[in-house]
C-alpha cells in the first residue's frame, strides 16, 4: 500500500546516489500528534514548575514545587509511618523495650543509623571494635553490660584511669608484672609468683581485684580472660606499655581511652534506642 502512495507523491528534486529521492510524504499522523502533544507538555510544564532561569532567581511555577519541599514531605510521610512506634517508645526505659520483642526489633532497626553516625567510627559497624576501641558485641564489659550501665556509658561518657608504673617500678619488675598478666589471661597466674607479688604490692589489685577479674565501677578490665582492651599483634609489648605508661594519666605518652558523653548531642529517646541497640549486639546482660 505504501508503495502505491509513494508513486503518487512528488519529490523535492533532491536526488543523490542516482536514485535516492527525497519525497514529499507527510509525516505520519501519530508522529505529528506526539510532536504537538510534546510541545503542549512543555508549555504546561513551564507554567506549573520552576523552569526559566532569570538574572536574579528563576520562574517559580504556579504549583510552588521545590525539591526541598518534596523531600520534606517525603520525610514527613516516613515519620508518620514511624510515629506509632516512636510514640510508644517515647518515655520507655530500655529494659521495658527489651521486654517486648516487636519493640526491640523496631528499635534495633531504627537505631542502626544512629549507631552508624555516632558510634561506628570508633566501635566499628555492628560493634565489631577497632584497635584501641572496645568490641561491643562480646560479653566483656569495662563498665558493665546491664542496660543501666550501657545507658550511663552513652549518656555521661566514660573515662577510666590507670597510673603508669615506669617511675615506681624497675624495668625488671615491669617485665615480671607483664609476664604475670600474660599468664593470668591464660589461667595460670600462679606460675609467675614474682609478678603476682608485684600485682598485689604495687596496688594493681585495688582496681583489677585480687583475682584480676576487674571492677566495673572503676572501668578496670578483667585480666583473666583472653580479651584485651589494647589488643595488638605483639600482645606482651602492648601490656608492658600499658603498665609502664598507664591510661588517661594526662602524660603525653600515656594511653588515651575516652568515651565522650552524648547527653548534649542526642535526645533522651535516641540514647534509649542506642542502649537497646548496643545491648542487642550480642553481649548485653
Amino acid at each position: 500500500m505504501s508503495d502505491k502512495k509513494t508513486n503518487q507523491v512528488g519529490d523535492t528534486g533532491h536526488v543523490w546516489d542516482d536514485n535516492l529521492r527525497e519525497l514529499l510524504n507527510e509525516p505520519p499522523r501519530w508522529w505529528m500528534i506526539s510532536f504537538y502533544a510534546s510541545i503542549a507538555w512543555v508549555v504546561v510544564y513551564f507554567i506549573l514548575y520552576p523552569a526559566i532561569p532569570l538574572v536574579n532567581g528563576y520562574t517559580k511555577g504556579i504549583m510552588g514545587w521545590t525539591q526541598i519541599k518534596e523531600y520534606k514531605e517525603d520525610l514527613q510521610k516516613i515519620e508518620q509511618v514511624r510515629a506509632p512506634w516512636e510514640n510508644k517508645i517515647k518515655g520507655m526505659t530500655p529494659a521495658a523495650i527489651l521486654a517486648d520483642s516487636e519493640l526491640t526489633n523496631y528499635t534495633v532497626s531504627s537505631a542502626k543509623v544512629l549507631f552508624g553516625d555516632r558510634c561506628a567510627a570508633c566501635h566499628g559497624a555492628g560493634g565489631a571494635g577497632n584497635p584501641g576501641f572496645p568490641v561491643l558485641a562480646d560479653d566483656d564489659w569495662l563498665f558493665g553490660g546491664t542496660v543501666d550501665a550501657i545507658q550511663e556509658s552513652i549518656a555521661a561518657g566514660r573515662q577510666g584511669m590507670m597510673p603508669g608504673f615506669k617511675d615506681q617500678l624497675s624495668e625488671k619488675e615491669i617485665d615480671e608484672l607483664t609476664d604475670f598478666v600474660m599468664a593470668l589471661s591464660q589461667g595460670n597466674g600462679d606460675s609467675q609468683p614474682a609478678g603476682k607479688a608485684l600485682f598485689d604490692g604495687a596496688g594493681c589489685s585495688g582496681c583489677h581485684g585480687a583475682d584480676g577479674k576487674g571492677m566495673h565501677m572503676m572501668g578496670a578490665p578483667n585480666l583473666t580472660d583472653g580479651i584485651w582492651r589494647f589488643a595488638s599483634q605483639d600482645q606482651r609489648a602492648s601490656v608492658r606499655y600499658t603498665i609502664a605508661h598507664g591510661v588517661n594519666t594526662g602524660e603525653k605518652d600515656a594511653r588515651n581511652a575516652v568515651m565522650p558523653s552524648f547527653e548534649n548531642q542526642l535526645s533522651k529517646t535516641d540514647i534509649v534506642k542506642l542502649t537497646v541497640y548496643v545491648h542487642e549486639l550480642g553481649g548485653g546482660q
Binding site: G124, A125, G126, G127, A128, G129, V135, A137, D138, D139, D140, N222, D225, G226, I227, L281, G282, G283
Partner: peptide, 18 residues
Amino acid sequence: HERQPLFVMQSDGSIQNK
C-alpha cells in the same frame, strides 16, 4: 549470619556467632 562482626571472643574463651 551477622557479618559485622563475623564472630566475637567471649570472656569465657568461647567464640560467639550471631
